[in-house]
């Protein structure tokens, strides 16, 4: 059971993610998580404001079902398939984050300083979460895909456009992590 309860190694996880893509293609669908955001927008009435959302969202119910499944999967994995092993981060990463004011890097999946209920009493935290969400929602639709659609599916099928998108993901990610996060979380 330890094999299941401990964190899974990358060389097992990567192929399992590819299996998710393969099974969705076999079902005649695609592996694209950000599309669900567009579908939800359409379902709650965004089609009244923009033609971009004028499509039969009910055809995309399978995608929303995956979203519900993913939420349940997250619950199952933490409740029944984990032994609360801390994430085995690089000691240099831990030191750096501690200097930025993060108390227990790796002890939880997300930093309490940004996501705990107590941290939500800070306007700064709420603004960060909103900005992050806006960037993810806007950027994925502009680039027409996220990690699943471009990095996994697009690169697996050797598409140039996905390579450009993934280069963009890294430009943005490197700027945020290396230059902006240190300004937001100053020691």
């Amino acid at each position: 059971m330890d094999f299941i309860l401990n964190p899974w190694p990358w060389y097992l996880s990567g192929p399992l993610i590819a299996f998710v893509m393969a099974i969705l293609l076999y079902f005649g669908k695609t592996f694209g998580m950000s599309s669900s955001l567009k579908t939800i927008c359409s379902a709650i009435g965004a089609n009244k404001f923009s033609d971009f959302f004028k499509f039969n969202w009910k055809d995309q119910r399978w995608n929303l079902t995956i979203v519900i499944g993913a939420i349940i999967g997250g619950f199952i994995a933490t409740q029944f398939l984990s032994n609360n092993t801390a994430t085995d981060l690089n000691p240099a990463t831990i030191t750096e984050l501690q200097q930025m004011g993060f108390e227990n890097p790796g002890a939880t999946l997300v930093p309490n300083e940004m996501f705990s209920m107590e941290s939500l009493t800070s306007i700064k935290t709420i603004v960060l979460l909103i900005i992050g969400g806006l960037l993810v929602g806007f950027g994925t639709r502009y680039a027409s895909g996220c990690t699943s659609g471009h990095a996994i599916t697009g690169l697996s099928s050797l598409q140039k456009q996905s390579l450009i998108a993934v280069i963009g993901f890294f430009i943005g990610g490197l700027i945020m992590t290396n230059f902006i996060l240190p300004l937001i979380f100053k020691a």
């Binding site: 969400g133 993901f169 943005g172």
Partner: peptide, 24 residues
């Protein structure tokens, strides 16, 4: 792809989650 990708990358690194993990 380059601009949209960069905007998404900024959000991904800030939140630490892309759309799938947000739900998970």
């Amino acid at each position: 792809f380059i601009v949209g990708g960069t905007i998404f990358g900024l959000g991904w690194a800030l939140i630490g989650a892309c759309p799938g993990p947000m739900y998970i």
